Computed example of a mutant assay.
Amino acid sequence: MNIRTKDNLVVIVAGIGMLLSTLDTGIINVALPFFKSYFETTADIAAIAVTGYTISLAVFILPFGLLSDKFGKLSFSYIGLIIFGLSSLLCGLSANIQMLIMFRIFQGIGAAALQATSASLITTLVSAEKSSSAIGVLGIMIGVGPVLGPSLGGLLLSLNSWRGIFWLNIPFVLLGLICNHKLITEISENKYAKHIDYPGSLTNGLFVILLISGLSLLSSHSIVGIALIIASLIAVIILFKVERNKETPVVNVINLIQNKSLLVYLYET
């Protein structure tokens, strides 16, 4: 495989991964009133289809980034595309709100694998001559996804095709899988033996779940929401205590906080 073909395939895989993961963050928002009526449920339960996706994405993106370094970014993005594609198909086949929520959580796991690998695929596999434009493409995908999502969701609902909100992803997933498979079979990646910080990952996941759940419940169940936000702050303190003496903490910002010279620099600027 020549360098130009490799660069183009990597950009396609990374771009599709970032587009899909950001697109589905907001495409379902406009459909929540419809799902409330269609599945005969409450607004709070219907909203879990959004928060469930966001929580699973946020919880898994950090450990997936470490795992992709260890087992290969292309392999991990390939798995992410499969999970995302299958869960998108199943979301559209959901017969009740419980099924939709469950498959949206799995979709968020696939999105985490895609987001965790998209940027690193470009920085590690794209040639130096093409890297600037490739990063620019990725930036466009990051911006287009959240903006395009609500518009496409509204259009599909107006056409009486709520299942299309999820099935819209499948052609892009198939294209990504074809390009990804081509890359896996013809090029080799550098892999790094990294220690996976399970206690840090679990504590960070708990923090994310508590914080996002608390914020989502503030308007409807304010007391519960505030309690969860307070619990998330406690989880941050625990996370700091768990990670502060580790050489490779799961949350790199802890190292930045402990770097006094960086704090002085930020203060001075």
Rank of each mutant, 00 (worst) to 15 (best):
I122L: 12
L168S: 09
G17Q: 07
I105E: 05
L66C: 03
P146D: 03
A111L: 02
M18K: 02
T51P: 00
I196K: 14
T203G: 14
L74T: 10
F103G: 00
C179E: 00
M1W: 05
I165L: 15
V236H: 09
M99K: 04
I82T: 05
N252T: 09
P199H: 13
K6Y: 01
P63Q: 13
V264A: 07
T5L: 10
I212G: 13
L211G: 07
I187S: 02
L155R: 02
D24R: 06
E268Q: 07
K246A: 04
R104Q: 05
G200W: 14
N255H: 13
L263D: 03
L57T: 03
A116L: 13
V224I: 15
G52P: 07
S131H: 04
K73C: 02
S120V: 14
V208Q: 12
S131K: 15
S120G: 14
G154T: 05
I45V: 11
L89A: 15
I27P: 06
A111W: 02
D69I: 11
S188Q: 11
F76H: 06
L89S: 15
V144S: 05
L174E: 02
Y198A: 04
V126K: 13
G72R: 11
L67I: 15
S127R: 07
G176K: 13
L183S: 03
G80M: 09
V224C: 08
A46N: 01
K130N: 13
V236L: 15
L183P: 06
L93A: 13
L138T: 00
G145S: 09
V30L: 10
I105K: 03
P146T: 05
S118T: 09
L57S: 02
L159P: 07
Y38S: 07
V251Y: 11
I48Q: 13
L67P: 07
M18P: 00
T123K: 10
L206W: 12
G153L: 06
N255Q: 14
A193N: 15
V137C: 01
P171G: 09
L93I: 06
N8K: 10
C179G: 00
G139V: 02
L121M: 05
N8G: 01
I12L: 10
I196W: 08
F39E: 12
L239H: 09
N245W: 01
L121H: 03
P63W: 11
C91Y: 08
L266K: 02
V10F: 06
I3T: 08
G52R: 08
L177D: 01
F35S: 08
I28K: 01
Y198D: 01
T5C: 00
E186F: 11
I79V: 15
G17P: 04
S133F: 09
G164F: 11
K246W: 03
L217V: 09
V264C: 08
I83C: 05
T117G: 08
I234C: 12
A128T: 08
S133L: 05
G225C: 11
E129D: 14
W162L: 05
S188M: 04
I82H: 03
L228H: 04
G65K: 04
T123D: 11
F60H: 03
I135Q: 09
P63D: 08
S216T: 10
L19S: 12
I184R: 14
G85T: 10
G225I: 01
V13P: 07
T25A: 10
I82V: 15
I170A: 02
E40F: 10
V59Y: 10
I135W: 04
I209F: 15
G92P: 07
